[in-house]
C-alpha cells in the first residue's frame, strides 16, 4: 500500500484552509495576520528544504554525514534553548550542548540498537528522523526546565540563601528548584501520554498508518517513542542543570548575576 501523494494543485487547496483564520483575524482585528503568514511561509520553506536534505541524506546514507547532521541539530537546539530561556549564551552554550548531545545520542542508540535492533544504527531513515523527534522534545523540555530552575532561584533568592546560610551546600540549597524544574519539564510529556490514543493519534502514528504500516506496528513504535521521549527529556534536563550549576554560582555559592541575558 502506497501513500496517496499530494499534487501541487492539492497543496494549493491546502493553503485555502488558511482563508478562514485570516478572515477571522481581519474581522476581529486579532493582529495575527502578519505573524501567521510569516509562520506559514517559514514552515513551508523549512519543510521544503528539509525534504531536499532528507532525500539527499537517505540517498547517500553516510554515517559521518548523518552524525554531522545530528550534531548540527543539537547545536541549533542548544542556541534555541538558551535564547528562549533568556540566559547568557557564553556561560551556557557548552554545558547545554554536551547535556543534549549525551542524552540524545544515548537514547537514540538505545532505541535503534536495543529496541529496533537495526544492523546499522546510523541508518539515516532512523538515526536522523528519530533523533530529530527526540531532540525536538528535549528542546521544549529544556526551555521549560532550565529557565524555571534559574528564574526560580533568582525569584526566591532569600529562601535559597536561608539554606545556604544554615550550612547547606549549593546542591542542597538548589534541590527544591531542581525538583520543580524537572516536574515542570516532564509534565507535558506525561500529560500527553495519558490522553494519547483516546482523543488524538500522535503525528508519528498517523504518519505511519498513512504510510501503510499496520496500526499494530504503529502503536508499538508510538509506545517506544513516547518512552524514549520521556527518558530524553528527563535525562537532558538533569544533565543541563548539573552541567550548568558549577559555572552559574560563584565560589561562595551565590548565583552569578551575569548568567541572565537581561536584568530580571
Amino acid at each position: 500500500m502506497e501513500t496517496t501523494d499530494i499534487s501541487s494543485f492539492s497543496l494549493i487547496m491546502a493553503f485555502f484552509m488558511l482563508l478562514y483564520p485570516i478572515i477571522l483575524s481581519y474581522l476581529f482585528n486579532l493582529k495575527i495576520i502578519k505573524d501567521s503568514i510569516i509562520s506559514v511561509i517559514r514552515m513551508s520553506v523549512q519543510l521544503f528544504i528539509m525534504s531536499l536534505i532528507l532525500s539527499y541524506f537517505f540517498q547517500i546514507n553516510n554515517i559521518w554525514i548523518n552524525i554531522g547532521w545530528i550534531i548540527f541539530m543539537i547545536i541549533f537546539a542548544s542556541f534555541r534553548i538558551i535564547q528562549a530561556s533568556k540566559l547568557n549564551t557564553k556561560n551556557f552554550i557548552m554545558p547545554v550542548f554536551f547535556a543534549l548531545a549525551i542524552s540524545n545520542l544515548f537514547v537514540l542508540f538505545y532505541f535503534n540498537y536495543i529496541i529496533l535492533r537495526l544492523d546499522n544504527v546510523f541508518e539515516a531513515r532512523y538515526f536522523i528522523v528519530i533523533g530529530g523527534m527526540l531532540l525536538g522534545n528535549a528542546l521544549t523540555g529544556n526551555i521549560i526546565g532550565i529557565s524555571n530552575f534559574y528564574k526560580d532561584i533568582q525569584r526566591n533568592k532569600e529562601r535559597y540563601l536561608f539554606y545556604l546560610g544554615n550550612g547547606a551546600t549549593v546542591y542542597e540549597a538548589a534541590m527544591p528548584y531542581f525538583r520543580n524544574a524537572l516536574i515542570s519539564a516532564l509534565r507535558p510529556t506525561i500529560a500527553s501520554m495519558a490522553t494519547i490514543g483516546i482523543v488524538y493519534l500522535p503525528g508519528m502514528m498517523t504518519g505511519q498508518i498513512l504510510g501503510g504500516a499496520s496500526p499494530q506496528t504503529a502503536i508499538k513504535y508510538q509506545i517506544a517513542i513516547m518512552l524514549a521521549i520521556l527518558l530524553t527529556v528527563s535525562l537532558s534536563v538533569t544533565l543541563t542543570i548539573v552541567f550548568t550549576i558549577k559555572s552559574s554560582f560563584d565560589e561562595c555559592g551565590i548565583i552569578k548575576e551575569n548568567i541572565f541575558k537581561e536584568k530580571q
Binding site: E158, R159, L161, F162, Y163, L164, G165, N166, G167, A168, P176, C252, G253
Partner: peptide, 18 residues
C-alpha cells in the same frame, strides 16, 4: 565561609522559607 555557615544558625527577616 562554608565553615562559618556550617556552625551558624541563620534566621533572616524573610521567613517564608519553604
Amino acid at each position: 565561609i562554608w565553615e562559618v555557615r556550617r556552625i551558624t544558625a541563620y534566621i533572616g527577616q524573610n521567613i517564608e522559607i519553604a
